[in-house]
């Protein structure tokens, strides 16, 4: 077993400008490497890396951090996923879904190497971290030839293994806006029988900001049921500014399933996925609701 690439060069730039220049210079033959757990294995879920001959290692760019800035929580792109689990910043109500997703992601060993930025940039339709981050209304900071700019995560995913990053652009940071403590959040992942480590059949993150039983804002993010992770906005819409009840949650769950567009693959059929999307959204919303009351 050996590496899939025919590498011509490997760079470990010290500055962001060097990194961007290298990416621009080598175009489609270059790829950013952080943890490497998605791009080094031979088998790829849909991604074609045959043309890659240059790897740009971003581990010297100081992107390994979790910090608070201007009331927001910021995660450096090359922060490994296990760091999310241990970071105290996320051990409060609104961010529980992020911890749950991090713990549901692969295995402890892989999470030592795999990075938060990598999970987003790989843009797998079943990426676990994407969902709580979508539900938290996160945005990403991108460095590029024209300087830095910000993209709402909601518009970041363009298709399987395809993002809004343009040539020469690198993901720098994920910014999570501040959320009130009365926000309830949860992440649920449905896997095959018996297994605790597997890619999702369906995964869901929800978030509810409540005032008593009045829902001020609802967010529902779904994965593995479409070409990208996405926010089910219609479903969330019927919850906003409403008094929550079980029936309303069920309606929202059905609506969220309607917004999904799953396919058949070797994990499940489209029909089962759609049905499960409704079940998971319902369960997640109920959980988030319950948590918001604590």
């Amino acid at each position: 077993m050996s590496l899939q690439y025919n590498l011509e060069n490997y760079y470990k730039p010290e500055t962001m400008k060097q990194a961007v220049d290298l990416l621009l210079k080598f175009g489609k033959t270059a790829k950013v490497i952080a943890g490497g757990t998605d791009i080094l294995p031979k088998r790829q879920c849909g991604a074609q890396f045959d043309t890659i001959t240059h790897l740009i290692d971003i581990s010297n760019l100081g992107l390994n951090y979790i910090k608070e800035s201007k009331g927001n929580l910021c995660i450096g792109a090359s922060t490994n996923i296990n760091s999310l689990v241990t970071a105290s910043a996320f051990h409060s109500n609104p961010y529980i879904g992020l911890i749950e997703a991090a713990e549901a992601h692969s295995t402890n060993t892989i999470r030592n190497q795999a990075t938060v930025g990598g999970n987003l940039c790989n843009a797998s339709p079943c990426a676990d971290l994407a969902l709580p981050l979508l539900a938290l209304s996160a945005c990403v900071v991108v460095a590029g030839p024209k300087g830095n700019h910000t993209i709402q995560l909601d518009t970041f995913f363009k298709g399987p293994n395809c993002t809004a990053l343009l040539p020469g652009e690198i993901l720098l940071e994920i910014i999570i806006p501040n959320h009130q403590e009365t926000t309830g959040a949860s992440f649920i992942k449905l896997r095959h029988h018996q297994t605790e480590v597997d890619m999702a059949v369906v995964n869901v993150a929800t978030q509810l900001l409540l005032d008593g039983n009045n829902c001020l804002r609802a967010m529902i993010a779904l994965g593995s049921v479409g070409p990208t992770s996405f926010l089910a906005k219609k479903a969330a819409g019927i919850l906003s500014r409403q008094t929550l009840n079980k029936k309303l949650i069920e309606q929202a769950a059905m609506l969220a399933a309607d917004e999904s567009a799953p396919i058949d693959d070797n994990r499940a059929t489209a029909g089962y996925r759609k049905e499960m999307a409704a079940v998971l959204v319902k369960n997640s919303l109920e959980k988030s609701w319950e948590r918001s009351r604590k």
Binding site: R43, T195, E196, V197, M199, N266
Partner: peptide, 26 residues
């Protein structure tokens, strides 16, 4: 959890990601 899946003679799950053998946590 196990079993090779085939389509037109192609094996769809020739790896440990898609061919699930149980892990310690399972």
């Amino acid at each position: 959890t196990e079993g090779l899946q085939l389509k037109d003679g192609h094996i769809l799950n020739p790896n440990f990601t898609d061919y699930r053998i149980l892990r310690s946590c399972d």
